[in-house]
């Protein structure tokens, strides 16, 4: 029993180790700076600059966060502070359901609804041509995928704040919104940050949906209407097939390692914050 327990705790290290070992061949030949910050990606010539993919990921995740943060935060405030209790309880299963929808379904939906929306309405509105398969489409789909993460955690953070603190403010004659703005948000700021960091890291590693709508062109996106090629899509599209090209698998595992490190880093940060405010979130 102890053995299995330790084993499962050890899995994180095992994964880190495995990825490092496999990425080692490329790390030995090239500097980390060259891999991460060169934009020349020509596997056949032995060039493995990952910048286009890293930028693709950053664009997509950035757009997702910009859309998701205000909407999720306002929804969480509404559900926990304004909505009648029954509506609050009623809405929880639906938020969980949103979290439970498989990412491939989000991808299908993105292709059916968001891609045409971007192509036919949003891009022409700004006078730009876009195929619709763009970092904007991927960002929009991703933002919906991380709504439930941010809303759920933010609501738990609000829930952990004693009712009496709100009442202290209300009793002074503050309106509910003043109470939210000056007391609730200030008190729960660390928790809200943690919630958004977790949402960010979820978006960062999300693969299928992004793969289906981002367009996957190896080029650094210059606008939201350009196609992008995020890291997870790179791995998904190429891994398992390109083992014949030297160093290709090392390069792909290197990108998996980058994902791993970034995601673990953000998780450590948000868990630390949540731990400081005594919350354990599922």
């Amino acid at each position: 029993m102890l053995l299995i327990t330790l084993g499962s705790g050890f899995l994180v290290f095992l994964m880190a180790l495995g990825l490092c070992v496999k990425a080692w061949p490329i790390l030995r030949l090239k500097s980390l700076g060259e891999i991460l910050f060169s934009s020349s990606w020509h596997p056949l010539k032995g060039d493995f600059g990952m910048l286009p993919f890293i930028m693709g990921t950053l664009w997509v995740t950035g757009i997702a966060i910009i859309i998701a943060v205000p909407i999720s935060l306002l929804t969480a405030i509404y559900l926990s502070e304004y909505a009648p209790k029954r509506m609050k309880e009623f809405s929880k299963p639906f938020i969980d359901l949103l979290a439970g929808i498989p990412s491939v379904i989000y991808g299908v939906w993105g292709i059916l609804i968001i891609v045409p929306l971007v192509k036919d309405h949003i891009a022409p509105f700004f006078g730009v041509y876009s195929s619709g398969y763009s970092v904007l489409s991927a960002g929009i789909v991703l933002s919906i995928m991380i709504f439930p993460v941010i809303i759920h955690i933010t609501m738990e953070v609000f829930h952990s704040i004693p009712r009496e603190l709100r009442e202290a403010s209300l009793a002074l004659g503050a309106t509910r919104w003043q109470t939210v703005k000056h007391v609730l948000l200030r008190k729960s700021l660390p928790g809200i940050v943690a919630a958004n960091v977790l949402g960010f890291s979820r978006a960062f590693g999300e693969t299928m949906a992004v793969l289906m709508v981002a367009g996957n062109i190896v080029k650094i996106p210059l606008s939201v209407f350009d196609a992008g090629y995020p890291l997870p899509a790179l791995i998904a599209n190429n891994y398992g097939e390109m083992l014949s090209i030297p160093l290709y698998d090392a390069a792909l595992l290197m990108s998996a390692l980058v994902l791993f490190v970034v995601v673990i880093f953000f998780n450590v940060v948000s868990r630390y914050i949540l731990h400081r405010i005594n919350l354990r979130i599922s």
Binding site: P162, E164, L165, E167, A168, S169, L170, A171, L172, G173, A174, T175, H182, V183, R186, K187
Partner: peptide, 20 residues
């Protein structure tokens, strides 16, 4: 309601200082 509450100061069982 805010004017009504302003007329009454509330002191609760445990002190709840505002986060400031």
């Amino acid at each position: 309601i805010t004017q009504i509450r302003k007329k009454m100061g509330l002191l609760s069982q445990k002190p709840y200082p505002l986060p400031m």
